[in-house]
C-alpha cells in the first residue's frame, strides 16, 4: 500500500515530464495531423481542408512503396545485427578480461563521430567499381584473396539498403553492447555461482538465466534501435545522396517538405510513420506490462 504522502509524490515527480511530453510531442503531433489534412503547398501556411487526399496520394505513390520496402529491410538488418553483435560483444567483455576498458571505448567510439564523415567513409569503403578502379573494401578483399566477398554494396538492386544498415550497425552496435553490459553487470553474481554449483555450463547459464533476465534490456534496445531505423536520414544522405533505390520515408518527407514545399504531404508521411510505430509498439508494450504484472 502506498502511504498518503507518497501517493501524491509519485504523481508530482512525473508530472513535469508528462506535461512537457504532452506539449512537445502530442500538441505538435496534433498540429502535424492538421497540416496533413490540408492543402498546404508553398511557403505560407494554408489550412484549407483536404480530407485524406494526401494519404491517398501516398498510398498510390510508387516512391512511397519503395520507401516502405527499404525501411523494412533496413530495420530488420539493423536491429537484428546490432542486437546480435552488441550482445556478443557484451558477453565477451563481461568475462573480466584485461583491456576491457580499451575494447569498450573502441567499440563505442564510432557512435561519437558525426554522420557526415562516417557516411562518406562508408561510401568510399563500399565503392562498387570494378577492374582497375576497384577500391575500398572490395580492393581489400581482392588483395586478401577473398574474392567471393566482393560485391556491389549499396548499389545492389533492392537489397542495397542492407549495406547502409551495415554502416549503421558499425556505428550503433557499441551502444547496444553498453546497454547489455550494464544489464549483465546488474545480475547478481550469486545467481551465476548457484547455477555453476548445480553443474550448469556457461552456455546454459546464458541461455537459461542471463538472457531471460536481460529481456527488459532487449526491449529497450529494440525500441531504441527501432526508432533510429525509422528516422534514418543523415547516414543515407551522406553515403548515397538522395536517390530512389535507397530512399526512405524520412528522406522523402524532408525532400517533399523543404525542397518541394508540399507541407501537407510531408506531414502525412510523418503521421503514417507514427501510426505504424503505434501499431507495432503498443501491443508489445502492453504484453510486456502484463507479463511483468503477473510476476
Amino acid at each position: 500500500m502506498l502511504r498518503d504522502k507518497d501517493r501524491f509524490l509519485n504523481i508530482l515527480l512525473i508530472s513535469p515530464s508528462i506535461l512537457a511530453v504532452f506539449i512537445f510531442v502530442y500538441v505538435f503531433i496534433g498540429w502535424s495531423v492538421r497540416v496533413s489534412l490540408s492543402k498546404w503547398k508553398g511557403l505560407n501556411p494554408d489550412y484549407t481542408w483536404n480530407g485524406i487526399q494526401n494519404y491517398l496520394e501516398l498510398f498510390a505513390d510508387p516512391r512511397f512503396h519503395v520507401d516502405i520496402r527499404n525501411t523494412l529491410i533496413f530495420t530488420g538488418v539493423f536491429v537484428f545485427g546490432s542486437i546480435f553483435l552488441g550482445f556478443i560483444l557484451a558477453v565477451m567483455l563481461d568475462q573480466g578480461l584485461k583491456g576491457e576498458g580499451f575494447f569498450r571505448s573502441l567499440f563505442l567510439f564510432p557512435m561519437a563521430i558525426s554522420y557526415i564523415v562516417t557516411g562518406v567513409v562508408w561510401r568510399w569503403l563500399m565503392n562498387p567499381a570494378t577492374g582497375s578502379r576497384t577500391s575500398g573494401l572490395n580492393l581489400l578483399f581482392t588483395n586478401l584473396g577473398l574474392d567471393s566477398l566482393v560485391n556491389a554494396w549499396h548499389t545492389t538492386p533492392t537489397w542495397g539498403i542492407a549495406a547502409i544498415a551495415l554502416a549503421a550497425i558499425w556505428q550503433m552496435s557499441g551502444y547496444t553492447m553498453v546497454l547489455y553490459l550494464a544489464g549483465l553487470r546488474a545480475i547478481p553474481q550469486e545467481l551465476k555461482e548457484a547455477a555453476q554449483i548445480d553443474g550448469a555450463s556457461r552456455l546454459q547459464i546464458y541461455r537459461y538465466i542471463m538472457i531471460p533476465l536481460l529481456s527488459p534490456v532487449t526491449l529497450s534496445a529494440l525500441i531504441i534501435l527501432g526508432h533510429m531505423s525509422l528516422k534514418v536520414f543523415d547516414l543515407i544522405i551522406a553515403i548515397a545522396g538522395k536517390q530512389l533505390p535507397l530512399d526512405v520515408p524520412a528522406i522523402y518527407m524532408w525532400q517533399i517538405t523543404f525542397d518541394g514545399l508540399f507541407y501537407g504531404k510531408g506531414a502525412a508521411i510523418g503521421i503514417l510513420l507514427l501510426i505504424s510505430v503505434a501499431v507495432l509498439i503498443i501491443p508489445y508494450i502492453r504484453h510486456t506490462l502484463k507479463t511483468e504484472a503477473q510476476q
Binding site: 502506498l2 504523481i11 510531442v25 518527407m253 510523418g270 510513420l273 507514427l274 510505430v277 503505434a278 509498439i281
Partner: peptide, 29 residues
Amino acid sequence: KWKFRGADAIFPFILFGMFIPYQSIMIPL
C-alpha cells in the same frame, strides 16, 4: 515501482514521443 492508477498508460504515452520525426515538428517547435 510506485505505480499509480493509470501508470501503465503513462509509460507508452511518454515512450511514443521517441518516434516523432523531428523534421515534421520543426515549425511548431
